[in-house]
C-alpha cells in the first residue's frame, strides 16, 4: 500500500484529504502535518512514498520546503497540492523536485490518480496545469538576480535615478537592465512589465 504524508495548514482540507485517501484503499496516510516544521519532524521518523505538499504554509515557503525535502529525502515523491496555478510557481516546484502538481479544485479521482502515478516515480500534472504548461506563450523566462532586484524596485514604483541610488549603480546600467527586462518579458512598457511581474509572480 502506498504511504502518504500530507502537509496543509487548513484542518478541514487536511481532514477531507485524509478521508479521501483512506477510503480509496490504495494508500494510507502516515502523517498529516499542519506546517513545514511539523512535516520535517515527521520526515525524520517516517518516509512516505508520496508527500502532498501545500505551497502556502504559515512558516515555510512550500517552494523552498520542496527543495529541502527533495535534497534530504530523494526517495519521497512530492506532489504540490495548491490553489496557485501560475506558470512560474509550477515551474519552480518542478525545478525544485516535485513530481506532481495538483490544483485544489481537482476532482477526487484526479488526486488519487496523481498519488498512484507519482508513487511509481512518474510525473503527474492535473489536467488544467498540463494544458496550461503546454501553451506556447508560457515560455520559461530566467531572470538574473540583478534583473529580479530591478524588477522588484520597478514594481514598488521607483524611478531609474532612485533605483540607481538603492542598488549603488549608475543610471546607465539601470537603463540597460530595464531594457533587458522589457525585451525578455516581451513587454511594451513599464506598466506591462509591472502587470507581468505580479501576475506571473516573477518577484
Amino acid at each position: 500500500m502506498i504511504k502518504v504524508g500530507l502537509v496543509d495548514d487548513h484542518p478541514l482540507f487536511l481532514e477531507g484529504l485524509n478521508k479521501l485517501i483512506v477510503a480509496s484503499g490504495i494508500a494510507e496516510v502516515i502523517f498529516a502535518a499542519k506546517d513545514g516544521k511539523e512535516c520535517l519532524r515527521q520526515l525524520a521518523f517516517n518516509y512516505p512514498n508520496v508527500l502532498l505538499l501545500d505551497i502556502n504554509l504559515p512558516d515555510y515557503s512550500g517552494i523552498d520546503l520542496c527543495k529541502e525535502i527533495h535534497d534530504c529525502w530523494p526517495q519521497v515523491n512530492i506532489i504540490a497540492l495548491t490553489s496557485f496555478g501560475e506558470y512560474t510557481i509550477v515551474r519552480k516546484m518542478l525545478d525544485n523536485g516535485a513530481l506532481g502538481y495538483l490544483l485544489k479544485n481537482a476532482m477526487p479521482e484526479e488526486i488519487l490518480q496523481g498519488v498512484e502515478t507519482v508513487a511509481k516515480g512518474e510525473t503527474f500534472l492535473c489536467h488544467e496545469i498540463d494544458v496550461f504548461m503546454k501553451r506556447d506563450s508560457h515560455r520559461h523566462v530566467f531572470l538574473t538576480p540583478r534583473e529580479t532586484d530591478l524588477l522588484r524596485l520597478i514594481v514598488k514604483g521607483y524611478t531609474n535615478p532612485e533605483i540607481a541610488v538603492e542598488l549603488f549603480l549608475g543610471v546607465e546600467t539601470i537603463n540597460s537592465y530595464r531594457k533587458n527586462l522589457l525585451f525578455k518579458l516581451n513587454a511594451r512598457n513599464t506598466a506591462v512589465l509591472v502587470k507581468m511581474a505580479i501576475e506571473e509572480k516573477l518577484i
Binding site: F142, T144, P145, R146, S176, K179, N180, F183, K184
Partner: peptide
C-alpha cells in the same frame, strides 16, 4: 553559469552570471 546576449536595433547587451 548563465550567459545571456540580447541584441536590439540600437544596442547589444551581454550578461554572464
Amino acid at each position: 553559469i548563465n550567459v545571456q546576449v540580447i541584441q536590439e536595433q540600437e544596442r547589444i547587451n551581454l550578461v554572464v552570471q
